[in-house]
């Protein structure tokens, strides 16, 4: 049941000045099924939420989030990173079905 993992929209500046604190935004397409919502037959729809999100820079964790059912559908996260050098950012997240997704972005620091 990995059907709920879809697109993500990750936004960050392509370039930054050394020492700048930049904002990174991630929006993930996911229904965030709470596990407490009855379907049309009155049966509870199984919980399926993105429960973990991580952002790594050159292999080192910059930011992470544990998510609970009270997070909105299509979860949105904005956080910061101090830009010290150019490198690769990896974003990865996982939902209750175990489906894992990953996206990569580069940032150039001058």
């Amino acid at each position: 049941m990995a059907g709920n993992m879809g697109r993500a929209l990750i936004s960050l500046p392509a370039k930054a000045k050394r020492g700048d604190v930049i904002e990174i935004r991630a929006m993930i397409a996911h229904p965030m099924e709470t596990g407490f919502r009855p379907d049309s037959q009155g049966r509870l729809v199984a919980r399926d939420i993105v429960n973990r999100f991580e952002c790594l820079f050159e292999g080192e964790q910059v930011f992470a989030c544990d998510l609970f059912p009270a997070m909105s559908a299509n979860p949105y996260l904005s956080f910061t990173m101090r830009a010290d050098m150019s490198g690769e950012l990896v974003f990865r997240w996982r939902d209750d079905s175990g489906a894992l997704s990953e996206e990569k972005r580069r940032i150039e620091v001058e």
Binding site: G6, R7, A8, L9, S11, R25, M27, A29, N74, Y76
Partner: peptide, 12 residues
């Protein structure tokens, strides 16, 4: 656009 949840569908 970086905050608009409709962009996920638009990108689809």
């Amino acid at each position: 656009d970086t905050a608009n949840p409709a962009m996920l569908s638009t990108l689809d």
